[in-house]
Amino acid sequence: MKQVLKELRTEIGLTQQELGDKLSVSRQAIIALETGKHIPSLDLAYKIAALFKKPIEEIFENPYLP
């Protein structure tokens, strides 16, 4: 899960700070998301999905699916 966000970010050439600015969150939040130390709220997950134009489950794996 954590690698996907980092890959998507680097693909479009954004720094952690720039991604944070686009999502209105701190750089610390981006680091925590990329390292799997923070599970995003649904609202933030939607924002990230919209930014990368991908479904949420392509970015964040659903641990409740069999």
């Binding site: 209105s24 701190s26 939040a29 998301l33 923070h38 995003p40 709220s41 933030l44």
Partner: peptide
Amino acid sequence: NADEFIRAQ
């Protein structure tokens, strides 16, 4: 006003 990660911390 802080983001959700900072708020939790």
